[in-house]
C-alpha cells in the first residue's frame, strides 16, 4: 500500500507522469468529446425533475445521443457496467411501495435528458439499504445511504467516426431539506497581451493571458457529511476546479483550481494560451465544484497574423 503511493509521489516529483509522452494533449479537442454534463439542479430532491445537458465538441457529421441511468454500477475498472437490470429494479420499486416512480433506465436520445424523481425519499432510502446487500465488485464504494442515494447518469455520443461514453453522479436526495448544491457560474472571459491590454482577437504564435471572471460565490459554503474520521464537520467552502479545453494551440494549464485554505482563489481564473495554426479557435471552460455542480462557457476567437 505504502510503496504504491510513495512511487506515485516520487514519479510526480520527477515529472514522470504518464501524460509526459508525446500524445495529443487532453485539453485539445480534435475529435468527438464529451467535455461536461450538467444536471440542473445538480442534486435532485423528491418530486423534482432534473435536466441533463452535455457539452459535446469536436464531432463530425451528425452526433447522436443516448442517455441512461443506473442505480448501481460496477465502477470504473469494469467500465461502469450496470449491475441491476430494469426488471430487478422494477421489483425493487415494488418493494418500496406504490406511488414510487423513477424513470426507466433508458433516458432517450435527445441532446437533453429529463430525470423525473417522483418518489418518497424514505422509500428510496429503504431501497438504498437494499442496494447495500448487493455484491459490489472490487473498487466500488457502496452507497452511504445517509442523506442521498447516488445513482449514475450515463451518456453515449456517436459521430461518423467515434463513440464516447461519459458518466456522472446522479445524487437523489432523500429530503428537499438536505443542504442543496447549485451549479456555479462563470462571468466574462478576457484575453490580455503581455502589456496587460485586453484583446478582441488573439495573435498567432503569441501567448496571451486568459482571465475567466469566476465569482467567489461559485464556491458555496456547506457542511460536509459526517464521517468516522470527522464526526462533527464544520462549514467549509467548496473546492472548485476549471478544465480548459481548446480546439487549437497550447495552454499553460490543463486545469486550474481553488482549494479553500490551500490555494488562492485567483489561481482558478488565470491561464495562458498560444495558438500557432488556424484562423479561428475555440476555448471551452468547464467549471466544476466538488459536489457535482457544473457550468461551462464557450468562446470562439479569431486568430490574426500570418500563418
Amino acid at each position: 500500500m505504502k510503496q504504491t503511493w510513495m512511487t506515485a509521489l516520487l514519479m510526480t516529483a520527477l515529472g514522470l507522469s504518464a501524460c509526459a509522452e508525446d500524445f495529443e494533449s487532453f485539453n485539445t479537442v480534435s475529435r468527438l468529446r464529451v467535455l461536461a454534463v450538467q444536471l440542473d439542479p445538480p442534486d435532485v430532491a423528491p418530486g423534482e425533475q432534473a435536466v441533463a445537458t452535455a457539452l459535446v465538441a469536436g464531432g463530425t457529421g451528425d452526433v447522436t445521443y443516448e442517455w441512461s441511468w443506473c442505480p448501481l454500477t460496477a465502477g470504473s475498472v469494469n467500465g461502469y457496467e450496470c449491475l441491476v437490470t430494469q426488471e430487478e429494479f422494477a421489483t425493487a420499486l415494488a418493494f418500496a411501495g406504490t406511488g414510487a416512480s423513477l424513470p426507466a433506465f433508458d433516458l432517450g436520445t435527445d441532446p437533453q435528458a429529463l430525470f423525473d424523481y417522483q418518489m418518497d425519499g424514505a422509500a428510496l432510502q429503504a431501497l438504498c439499504a437494499l442496494a447495500l446487500q448487493q455484491q459490489a465488485p472490487a473498487f466500488v464504494a457502496l452507497p452511504s445511504c445517509d442523506d442521498r442515494f447516488v445513482a449514475t447518469l450515463m451518456l453515449t455520443v456517436r459521430d461518423d467516426e467515434d463513440e464516447v461514453t461519459a458518466v456522472k453522479e446522479l445524487p437523489l436526495l432523500f429530503s428537499a431539506d438536505t443542504g442543496r448544491n447549485g451549479n456555479p457560474s462563470i462571468g466574462a472571459v478576457t484575453f490580455f497581451n503581455e502589456a496587460g491590454i485586453a484583446l478582441e482577437e488573439i495573435t498567432r504564435s503569441e501567448r496571451v493571458d486568459v482571465f475567466a471572471d469566476v465569482p467567489l460565490t461559485a464556491s458555496e459554503s456547506f457542511i460536509p457529511a459526517a464521517t468516522n474520521e470527522v464526526p462533527d464537520p464544520v462549514e467549509t467552502r467548496e473546492i472548485l476546479f476549471m478544465t480548459w479545453f481548446v480546439t487549437a494551440g497550447e495552454l499553460a494549464f490543463t486545469r486550474t483550481g481553488y482549494i479553500d485554505g490551500e490555494t488562492a482563489f485567483e489561481d482558478i481564473q488565470d491561464n495562458s494560451w498560444k495558438v500557432d495554426d488556424g484562423d479561428e479557435a475555440t476555448l471551452y471552460l468547464v467549471l466544476q465544484d466538488e459536489r457535482g455542480g457544473v457550468v461551462w462557457k464557450q468562446i470562439d476567437v479569431q486568430v490574426e497574423g500570418r500563418p
Binding site: W5, S17, I259, E262, T263, I268
Partner: peptide
C-alpha cells in the same frame, strides 16, 4: 503550485512521505 493541474482528484496542495 496548482494541484488541479496535476489531478482534479487532488484536494490538497501538499504530498509527503
Amino acid at each position: 503550485d496548482n494541484p488541479a493541474n496535476l489531478s482534479p482528484d487532488l484536494t490538497t496542495a501538499e504530498g509527503s512521505t
